[in-house]
């Protein structure tokens, strides 16, 4: 039942060290806090570790962070397990996070997810056998205007998805030629039926000329 099971079917790397560039960032983060309060940097360091280590945080990294910040290991573990955006197991080369909260769901995220599951042959929470894709569902990504959306590797948003175009997007991602943003060609969050402004609405209503 536990969200993070210790019985896992992947291998934990034996050790973890921050890269030279990241180590500089680590020091910058620690310097933000008063002396003796270095543990406050734990979230920033976990994020750095996740970025450096293919999108997930191995145990060795948590131990390294505990050592750097001079805090008990379990305290790092508490933070890492509390926040869902820290991944404690490998999430494939492409981590696809579908928004399934109400606006996306009303706009058809359910069908989009099903199309992807069918295309990749896996369910939400699973990784493809070749390790390319991992599908998961998340709560609101804050891009409701362009619903439905998914997030790729915690970074790029792919918007205005349909069961049809999402399959192509996945293939493009795998081929390395996908373009983030709207998949229907709309510019940013412009209205789906063309640009609209309040002024235009006012003119239509005859309030303004």
């Amino acid at each position: 039942m536990s969200a993070v099971s210790h019985k896992v079917d992947f291998e934990q790397p034996k050790d973890f060290k921050f890269s030279k560039e990241n180590m500089a960032k680590v020091e910058k983060h620690i310097a933000k806090y008063p002396k003796g309060r270095q543990a406050s940097a734990v979230m920033a360091l976990l994020t750095l570790a996740q970025e450096q280590h293919d999108g997930w945080i191995p145990e060795a990294a948590m131990e390294e962070i505990a050592r750097i910040l001079d805090m008990p290991r379990v305290k790092v573990f508490e933070v890492a397990t509390f926040y869902t955006m820290y991944n404690l197991s490998p999430k494939g080369k492409h981590h696809i996070q579908f928004c399934t909260t109400t606006p996306c769901w009303l706009a058809g995220s359910g069908e989009v997810v099903r199309a992807c599951e069918k295309h990749l042959g896996i369910h939400l929470g699973e990784t493809t056998p070749d390790g390319e894709f991992h599908l998961s569902d998340v709560e609101c990504l804050g891009a409701c205007v362009n619903a439905p959306v998914f997030q790729h590797n915690g970074d790029d948003f792919y918007e205005d998805l349909t069961p049809e175009n999402v399959v192509k997007v996945l293939d493009d991602i795998k081929a390395g030629k996908a373009k983030p943003g709207s998949q229907t060609g709309r510019v940013k969050s412009m209205g789906a039926k063309g640009p609209t402004t309040l002024g235009e609405q006012a003119r239509k209503a005859g309030i303004e000329k």
């Binding site: 536990s2 008990p72 379990v74 573990f77 508490e78 397990t81």
Partner: peptide
Amino acid sequence: VSELGVLNRGEHLEIGTYVE
């Protein structure tokens, strides 16, 4: 000994140790 901690959250919240 800081070996016990509160892991996960919400319905999944549990008391545990760092890696058994």
